[in-house]
Design a protein around this nucleic acid. Structure first.
Length: 466
RNA sequence: GGCGGGGUAGCCAAGUGGUAAGGCCGGGCUCUGCAAAAGCCCCAUGCGUCGGUUCGAUUCCGUCCCCCGCCUCCA
């Protein structure tokens, strides 16, 4: 059975069929952050979903070539740099750096390409694309100097979002000063320079200005991955207008089908409400780390719900994630302790294939995790009963390693400090001599150093105090 | 107004036209110098409401009630 994913365009789960059927290569474009502040956990839900997608494809033997763009020029970044009184690049740089750190914290695999919208070659490509669109009648320069895409020239505009453009309700978010446009729905390809832009701007055939948001992605996507892309992802709010616009621009330039498969993840809610600063339920990853939660725990929460379902983020959920991970860790430790050097075949009734099968079914990670925990319970029973050989335990450990190439939920490796280790050695000796008073004293000494020691059947076990 | 998603045990969350995965919490047992941990077992006659189709519905159809998202630069 092959892989199937839900396609936003067709609204059906379809068998996955990349352009390159023989080479097993997949091109993946994912909309990245606008670097005007620290990304919040809602943003990271999308990036974790995309990470799961990439790792699942790799688990199934595909080589994924992924692009994640960085939007480093737009209204917010310009506003930010002007408020800070620094050049644009200087303003966005720390947020770019922070973003990469956050990706690492969440164990998100780094895409091969991180194009920046302001890079000279990309700006150049955007200008070229806009010129082509104007030549072909898909775009026009309005009285205000800006260049707009003529949506009437692209009959399928609205197909991705399944919007009937004639029935659109005017919303308050449409800037009232955009009366120069032929159609209210025409979107900016090139925004002419205004006072508010300060020293941000590039020269173009249409005067000084800056690119619109949508053309950035079209230029970087087709520039790096070519005219046809296998998968394009983003948050559900990107469907319209952003991805709709990308399709229109790209296809009018290349004459090819821009994207074969569109995948979007649902929003994250906090306490069943949309995250917002005014509600006090707005969190960046850094906020959570500051509260003592780990990147792995946050990853678990963001990962554990199917991407097409709304995810309700709560601190109870984070606490549940911590305990669940602990169960995973204990099982993992038992495997390492019991594993022999060479693998032996496992009993077939463990159903290990269910993990991959669940993911093949439109990334049903909840079912996949359910299968993992069922395996944990079943193998724990057999470990208790001693019915697994060291070679079979090795096979289970290998299986565990393989699922972690997708889940990336393995424990943090925290080396035991020498000071703690010497106390542990002394305590082991005291316990062997049944000197309980000394044992308790040493336990307290270890606790004072920030570690927790527990006495198990296999001896002392130490872990960092949480 | 248009389009779409969701309501499953105390919490989170899979799933199926044939009688409810998994995680957390809770209870029990085992192990145990103490403390703790861990492992195992138990924990929804029920799947928002009211109807319909069916031998049989949580699953299909319709009604109604809630919650959430998009509708022109928010992941």
């Amino acid at each position: 059975m092959g892989i199937s994913y839900f396609n936003t365009l067709t609204r059906t789960v379809e068998p996955f069929q990349p352009l390159d059927t023989e080479g097993r290569r997949v091109s993946l474009y994912t909309c990245g952050p606008t670097v005007y502040n620290h990304a919040h956990i809602g943003n990271f839900r999308a990036y974790v979903f995309e990470d799961l997608l990439q790792r699942h494809l790799e688990f199934r033997g595909y080589a994924v070539n992924r692009v994640m763009n960085l939007t480093d020029v737009d209204d917010k970044t310009i506003r930010g740099c002007r408020a800070a009184g620094v050049p644009l690049a200087e303003f966005t740089q720390p947020f770019k750096k922070a973003f990469f750190e956050d990706l690492e914290t969440l164990r998100i695999k780094k895409p091969q390409h991180f194009p920046e919208a302001t890079a000279a070659n990309h700006i150049e490509r955007m200008i070229t694309m806009i010129s082509t669109l104007i030549e072909r009648g898909h775009a026009y320069q309005a009285e205000d100097g800006s260049v707009y895409f003529r949506i009437r020239s692209f009959p399928t505009y609205g197909a991705l979002a399944h919007l009937n453009l004639d029935e659109l309700r005017p919303s308050g978010r449409v800037a009232s000063d955009e009366y120069e446009k032929e159609n209210i729905g025409d979107f900016a390809l090139w925004k002419t320079w205004t006072e508010a832009d300060g020293d941000v701007g590039w020269d173009s055939p249409w005067g000084r200005g800056r690119p619109g948001w949508h053309i950035e992605c079209s230029a970087m996507a087709t520039g790096i991955l070519g005219p046809e892309i296998d998968i394009h992802c983003g948050g559900e709010d990107n469907i319209f207008p952003h991805h709709e616009a990308e399709i229109a621009q790209s296809e009018c330039v290349t004459g090819r089908r821009f994207v074969r498969l569109w995948m979007h993840c649902k929003h994250l809610l906090v306490d069943n409400q949309k995250m917002s600063k005014s509600l006090g339920n707005f969190y960046t990853l850094r906020d959570l780390l500051g509260k003592g939660w780990t990147g792995r725990e946050v990853r678990y929460v963001l990962l554990s719900v199917k991407y097409r379902e709304p995810l309700n983020f709560t601190f109870d959920g984070l606490a549940a994630a911590r305990t669940a991970l602990h169960r995973l860790d204990e099982w993992s430790r038992r495997l390492d302790e019991g594993a022999g050097p060479s693998a032996e075949p496992l009993p077939e009734d463990l159903g290990l294939e269910r993990f991959g099968a669940a993911l093949d079914d439109d990334l049903n990670v909840s079912a996949a995790l359910g299968a993992v925990f069922e395996t944990i319970r079943e193998t724990n029973k057999r470990l208790d009963a001693g019915t697994l050989s060291p070679g079979q335990i090795r096979s289970l450990a290998n299986w565990r390693d393989s699922i972690h190439t997708v889940l990336r939920l393995e424990p943090e490796e925290t080396p035991i400090p020498a000071e703690v280790q010497s106390l542990l050695d002394a305590r082991a000796a005291a316990r062997a001599a049944k000197n309980w008073a000394e044992s308790d004293r040493l336990r307290e000494a270890i606790t004072a150093l920030g570690w927790t020691v527990k006495d198990t059947k296999e001896g002392q076990k130490v872990s960092p105090a949480t």
